[in-house]
Design a protein around this nucleic acid. Structure first.
Lengths: 313, 313
DNA sequence: TTACAATTATACTCAGTAGGTATTATGTCG
DNA sequence: CGACATAATACCTACTGAGTATAATTGTAA
């Protein structure tokens, strides 16, 4: 498959007519026909219904059309951004983050950074905490926001906050009758759902270690790939699930109770390379400091321990 | 630019070595060098620093590398999804939505639909309300979720709910001293920020019409492209902004007050083609009905009028 | 500093393929 | 059914991507 083929197919799908599409693409009609045929051949799927005038799209073609439009748009953006950076000799600040930080301060951090540094290109990449450490060392990212402590001497970690953990409980079960914080011991003998299944170690192990440290043994542990599935299973009364409190808003048809205990938390951690002299690292810290001072909703005392980033006195 | 060039560049960027990359790509080293040169030529930007061993990425190259990875991944997904649909003769349900429905029931609707119909491919496309009507008629989407009434006889609209409007007010200004609902008249003579600038007609016109209908004339109207900018300007004390209540959660450093009055609402509307016999339309309505019965948080009485979709008696 | 090993760029050739032209086949509509 | 519009096929040409041989450059170690 080839970008040219995508462009050609988009042309035909838009015009619903090979001849007109060929004109707009500045080629003759026969080569256009052949390229579309080649595309269909490679996919092993018919994209167009030709024994009909005007030509119609198959269901597969309809899907492929929208996807192709998006890919082509993405390529254009990529080209433009690369030129911008290259021609202006700008630098790139590449930020890795775990999905759960999207429910915290990340979006507004990125907005603030973009606003304050229009001369650099900010790139955000979703990745798990464990992947962030090698990504930092290889230079794929400059800053990471994750939830896992690590022991790599090449990477500094700064704990930004300690978010309290919440237990998601199926409605109409005994534990859901109360809304008071739940002692960790109450999880003994319960079915537990845990995520993500991989990569390991991950947040799942944080939860399992916490229980283990309190000598709490669930009846059964089921691992799933993502939090959405986990909460779905909770709603289906398959078991309980321990989540960071900010993830409560993801689903409203289950019952939530805070987990009791000083240690029942998950940190949000900022990573960066040791000895990274880029001024942007300090800028990020600066902006984070300001954001924490504003007392945003994701920093509520109810869902966070009263710790603060070490650089934010 | 060509997908082959992206694959080649990714190879070199990963290996930081032309020779090894060429081996893994199953080509000789010279053609690889030339393709990379051609890519850099077309972009007009250096992606690699060659007078260094191992080869390093420039800032532009670093950006391009991650973007290329994502584009290639996207292409693979596209190929797989198209094959899935084509080979199994599945159908595609294509859903258009305005961004603000992301703060309402859309994500969970899509999840539920995917779960209940594993045999169809669900595709979601973000687009403004006005664009959804032609998209429906052209068959680009089958279902739309928007906020605008229309008068096209080919498209049915079903008002799902009437969401109350909220005024975003800069902190520490007189209007922000109270949290009670604000009469529409209070906007007289105020500076107003309105979004989106285009396409017209859009939500901006809804707000302007509402004011006009109450003979309220703001001192000044500033149009911006998106809600984030609008709220940013509010925070910067540039003026007030009227938003759907569900958008409150986007920003916490401004003050919010409900707008008073029966008509101070913005609908959430389901569109589909007249006479669309697909069983999936009914399924969608069915699922929406269930969701509304569950009283999700985005349906709170505080932020919505007590109307319900006509099919959900 | 020099020489050698490793690695990338250049020169040249060949083959595959994209595109063009001419023509045939197929569908649509009066 | 016939005429027109439109897509597919056949065939040719030219370009471009890939291979081989070789030169140029970089890093390193004596």
């Amino acid at each position: 498959m080839d970008l040219r083929q995508l462009r050609y197919f988009v042309g035909v799908a838009r015009e619903r007519n090979f001849t007109r599409a060929a004109q707009q693409l500045n080629i003759a009609q026969p080569p256009l026909s052949r390229q579309i045929q080649a595309l269909e051949d490679e996919l092993g799927v018919a994209l167009l219904i030709r024994n009909s005038r005007p030509v119609r799209l198959t269901e597969a073609g309809r899907l492929f059309y929208e996807q192709a439009l998006q890919v082509l748009g993405r390529v254009d953006q990529m080209r433009a951004a690369t030129r911008r950076v290259g021609l202006n000799q700008n630098s790139v600040l590449s930020i890795g983050f775990v999905a759960s930080t999207l429910y915290g301060g990340l979006p507004s951090l990125v907005r603030k950074l973009r606003h304050r540094t229009p001369d650099i290109e900010i790139q955000v990449l979703e990745m798990m905490s464990v992947q962030q450490i090698p990504a930092l060392k290889e230079g794929r990212i400059d800053i990471g926001f994750g939830r896992l402590h690590h022991s790599d001497s090449g990477v500094v970690e700064i704990v930004l906050r300690e978010e309290r953990l919440t237990v998601a409980i199926p409605r109409d079960t005994p534990l859901a009758q109360d809304s008071a914080p739940l002692p960790i011991g109450a999880l003994t003998g319960q079915k537990l759902i845990v995520y993500p299944k991989e990569p390991r170690p991950g947040y799942a192990d944080q939860v399992l270690n916490l229980l283990h440290g309190h000598d709490v043994r669930p009846a059964e542990v089921q691992e799933v790939r993502e939090i959405q599935t986990a909460l779905g299973l909770v709603a289906a009364e398959t078991g309980l699930c321990v989540i960071p409190s900010s993830a409560r808003q993801m689903r409203s048809d289950v019952h939530y109770r805070l987990l009791e205990g000083e240690r029942a938390t998950s940190p949000v951690i900022l990573y960066h390379r040791v000895g990274d002299t880029s001024p942007y690292i300090d800028l990020v810290k600066e902006v984070i400091k300001e954001m924490y001072a504003e007392n945003p909703p994701w920093l509520s005392a109810e869902h966070n321990l009263p710790t603060r980033p070490s650089f934010a006195e």
